[in-house]
Design a binder for these strands. Sequence first.
DNA 1: TAGATTGTTAATCGATTAACAATC
DNA 2: TAGATTGTTAATCGATTAACAATC
Lengths: 211, 211
Amino acid sequence: MRSTTVSIQTLRRLPLYLHYLKSVKDELPSISATLLADALGLNDVQVRKDLGSVSGNGRPKKGYVTEELIVDLEEYLGCNSNTPAVLIGAGNLGRALLSYSGFSDYGLRIVAAFDASPAVVGKEAGGLTVRPIDELKKICTDNDVKLGIITVPASGAQDACDKLVACGITAIWNFAPTTLKVPEGVLVENENLASSLAVLSKHLIGDGRIA
Amino acid sequence: MRSTTVSIQTLRRLPLYLHYLKSVKDELPSISATLLADALGLNDVQVRKDLGSVSGNGRPKKGYVTEELIVDLEEYLGCNSNTPAVLIGAGNLGRALLSYSGFSDYGLRIVAAFDASPAVVGKEAGGLTVRPIDELKKICTDNDVKLGIITVPASGAQDACDKLVACGITAIWNFAPTTLKVPEGVLVENENLASSLAVLSKHLIGDGRIA
DNA sequence: TAGATTGTTAATCGATTAACAATC
DNA sequence: TAGATTGTTAATCGATTAACAATC
């Protein structure tokens, strides 16, 4: 495995490759970038470049050994590591994420869930008991948590964010439809449903050409 | 309001502007692109360009009338329209989306939920009774549904997608971690949690510089 | 008028795609 | 060897940012 520069766009595609490869590894012991590109509806050169920067174990005429490529991707993405995370906001979306089992495939483990509302604290969600916010600091320190997930309404998002940052969190997954202000060195990844919906709606409305 | 070409990136930012403007409209009767950019952590020229292509009602020295800009954005995004949608896959994520009340702000209305599993059919989720897949066609036709939401596991996503397309759906919101194959003219918007997680994980792992 | 803010035109940057040489 | 497939270098494309002229 190499350690070249990988663009964010490439990084986003890697899990797609990994997921597809896992699903076909029994039928296809080896696979070419062209075939992979075709299966995922991507440009073949792009896939070749992406794989090259992460694995580099492709052989001319043969392509990649599927199993080998899976291992390289998993290693690169840290799927075998165990990243502890905390979640703030045990509403509908928060509980859905807590119950979602697929995260462990990517090395993520949500160790605790918090909510500001006393009505929700103490209830169970996805195998965890929802805790009050004032326990956040202790949990983060004890478990060396660096990743925080925000699933509160937009109005409370910045506050939740500030609390997470104060606890030493350096990566935030934000599901609230707001932009968060964070200090240098903290990464925010926005999962903005409204943005996606805008793209879909505009396609349906049809006017106002999209580039 | 104008009708110029709007890039997809711009389109994705519009809901952020709208959300922020709504939250401050009582305090700020008018707002400049610079101020808006600052609040959202964006480049001011970018915001100016984005707003210019949608509203164009900015006045030198004064900026935009907040209320006016909100109306322009809402009109552009079709927030006041009523887009019917169907959802396939009433699992954790599907139910969370069904219960999420925020979509109506953007003109979306989920009219029916479907699931392949007989165990789930008939149960209630977000005020709707989950229906069997074979009712899909009728519901879509009766309600003139053009937007479909896929929240099934990856293995069933393409099948769900094909069924939606067969019912005349032309826009698909895909939450399954797979790439979907669709005919020309059908738009797929992927909400890929694994991709976002990859970006976050890589930031935490820290090695392998991200461009 | 002076100055803040707008909108536009040009420069930069990054990512994708195309062309090509290398190799099993 | 011939050909498929790789990886790399160059060209294209689109989006962001910078510089500037227009305007209330």
